[in-house]
């Protein structure tokens, strides 16, 4: 599916207020000699409906940046505003609520609960949204259907292939109706054919459902599915430009 950022949609994205504002974020691990500046003064905005690819050499801080955006990790300094709210001012429970209601995660290692069916895994975020059993099941099945796995709803992760597990993880991320999906190398463990399937799914979520996507990847081909590419080196943003497709 070709990306078409030209026209009304692209124009709207450009004028909307930013969903995510990152200002001069640092994330420092260790102290003294052993100090590692995983993020070293990162700033960027992400507007609603964007599909941002993040690339860079290993160790350049991509995952760290994504974890900070997802409130899974706290920056050492700097400002992070989500929908205009200063995330640094929120406590653990409030950040949990932010994750619960606005964010969806896709991890390279899937991070599904073992010995738990695909359906139950997808239902997990809905439990914490306080939905009734019936509603949860309807939604989880719909999400699984969207990733083409409705037939496998009652399989355990151990009975699914890597690509299928990643699709369950995507279903879990989108079941909760997030504004933003944060994906860390979602195709890192998959072959090209499966990777393209997953990317087409992501593009669809972005374009038809208007979900903002931030995706870390090592592969140029996958990054090209996005509309914008942030290139990181040594904890800093080295370049930030539209993808070739979008350009």
């Amino acid at each position: 599916m070709p990306v078409d950022p030209s026209g009304d949609r692209a124009a709207k994205i450009a004028t909307d207020p930013p969903l995510i504002e990152v200002r001069d974020i640092t994330r420092i691990y260790g102290t003294g000699e052993a100090e590692v500046r995983a993020l070293d003064g990162v700033s960027f905005d992400i507007r609603p409906g964007e599909f941002v690819s993040v690339m860079g050499p290993s160790g350049s801080g991509k995952s760290t940046a994504l974890n900070v955006l997802g409130c899974l990790d706290s920056p050492t300094s700097g400002h992070y505003l989500f929908n205009g709210v200063e995330v640094g001012g929120l406590d653990g429970d409030q950040r949990a609520l932010l994750r619960r209601h606005y964010l969806g995660f896709i991890f390279q290692g899937y991070n599904l609960l073992p010995r738990t069916t695909a359906l139950q895994n997808v239902e997990l975020p809905l439990i914490y949204k306080g939905m009734s059993r019936e509603e949860r099941e309807t939604r989880a099945i719909a999400a699984l259907d969207k990733v083409g796995l409705a037939q496998r709803a009652h399989h355990d992760p151990s009975q699914l292939s890597g690509g299928q597990q990643q699709r369950v993880a995507i279903a879990r991320a989108l079941a909760g109706d997030p504004q933003v999906i944060l994906a860390d190398e979602p195709t890192g463990n998959l072959d090209t054919k499966r990777s393209v399937e997953i990317m087409e799914l992501m593009v669809e979520l972005n374009q038809s459902d208007g979900i903002t996507i931030v995706m870390v990847t090592h592969e140029d081909d996958m990054a090209e599915f996005g509309s914008r590419l942030i290139w990181m080196v040594d904890g800093k943003v080295e370049s930030d430009r539209p993808t070739k497709r979008a350009a």
Binding site: G70, L72, G92, D93, A96, L97, R99, R100, H101, F105, N111, L112, L113, L124, P125, Y128, K129, R172, G176
Partner: peptide, 16 residues
Amino acid sequence: TREIGIRMAVGAQASQ
């Protein structure tokens, strides 16, 4: 602990 991490990532509060 990993399970706890997953649950918190999808929005569980520590108390839950």
